[in-house]
Amino acid sequence: MKHIISALVENHSGVLARVSGLISGRGFNIDSLAVGETQDPDVSRMTIVTTGDDRVVEQIIKQLGKLIDVIKVVDISEDEIIDRELVLAKISANPATRNDIMQIVNTFRAKVVDVNPKSLTIEVTGSESKVDAMLELLLPFGILEVVRTGLVAISRRAELAAPEKITAKTTRFSAGDEKPKAGKEKKKAAAGKKAIGDDWY
């Protein structure tokens, strides 16, 4: 069965590698993974589509949940959701077939975004089944290239929200608490400015 897993993750480098590494390392298969920033620039949303029995999907979710950089993770397949995928497809076309292709494009409320003597590039957004249906109709004309974003999905009801980031109170240590050597590096430039030998050892 197909499952759509939605995850909120910290938006910093390495997180995608953690998620994809975990998925491949534990032998899970995924159909697609889409990721982008949310309304909060510190947080990204990942939408992962996977096919597997409930136990496998349960494991994926639990294992993802264990990653420190994954803030929240849920299976939204059973929810009422809106799911969309954006596809760019280059279709072989000539003056004789162009009109037929345009008709299919119009029927699916897709758009022609580029015209060439030998091809048409179309843009279509929709659920996976809509996209698949359209591509199937276009197949006889000759599909030269297809680029898909992978599915993104949003639940109609509950919002998946990340708890706010809390910065802990800190205690600053006065010079007296520091080690004897502290006096020496005061001569050195302040943070940010490069000291000699900064990049080598």
Binding site: K72, P163, E164, A168, K169, R172, F173, E178
Partner: peptide, 22 residues
């Protein structure tokens, strides 16, 4: 990284730990 270990900083000790994904 070695260059970070050479830069200067004020020592500020966080009173507690908050990690929202943990």
């Amino acid at each position: 990284p070695v260059n970070i270990s050479r830069q200067t900083v004020e020592f500020e000790w966080p009173e507690e730990v908050h990690i929202r994904g943990y």
